[in-house]
Computed example of a mutant assay.
Amino acid sequence: MRADELLQTHTLWHGDTVLLRLAGELDLATAPLAHQAVTTALSGRPRALCLDLTGLTFCDGTGLRALNRLTHRIHTTHTSLHLTGLHPNLYRTLGLLKTASSWTPTALLH
């Protein structure tokens, strides 16, 4: 399977806020797609980026590192980051990695 078949990204702008939805698997093969989606979204200079992970079905160690790097990338642009759809187990794991503390969880689903 191709990476774009394993992870789909959807971007929706609302004023100066961008909603970026990741759906599928976040791993070694697909992390570059997530990085590119964030880079593209940030090129529009949003005030806030809402990262929706509701559709994320799999996230391994590489996916966790990718989320950590994406978080850092977003914060270096002084863009507010809001996280939605994060499974509680993944939220706890990210908290252990000190990543979740820099995110504003707006909804924990499942």
Rank of each mutant, 00 (worst) to 15 (best):
T30F: 05
T30Y: 11
T30A: 06
A31M: 09
P32W: 03
A34Q: 07
H35I: 02
H35D: 01
H35M: 03
H35E: 01
T39D: 00
T40W: 05
A41D: 00
L42E: 00
S43R: 14
S43D: 05
S43F: 07
G44F: 05
R45T: 01
P46C: 00
R47E: 02
R47D: 01
R47V: 13
A48M: 06
A48L: 05
L49I: 12
L49R: 10
L49K: 06
C50W: 11
C50T: 15
L51A: 01
D52C: 02
D52Y: 08
L53K: 11
L53T: 08
T54Q: 12
T54E: 12
T54L: 03
G55K: 05
L56M: 11
L56D: 14
T57Y: 00
F58W: 11
F58A: 02
F58Y: 15
C59I: 11
C59E: 11
C59F: 12
C59K: 06
D60I: 12
D60G: 09
D60Q: 10
G61I: 10
G61E: 06
G61W: 10
G63R: 08
L64W: 08
R65S: 08
N68H: 15
N68R: 15
R69H: 14
R69S: 12
R69E: 07
L70Y: 11
L70T: 07
L70M: 14
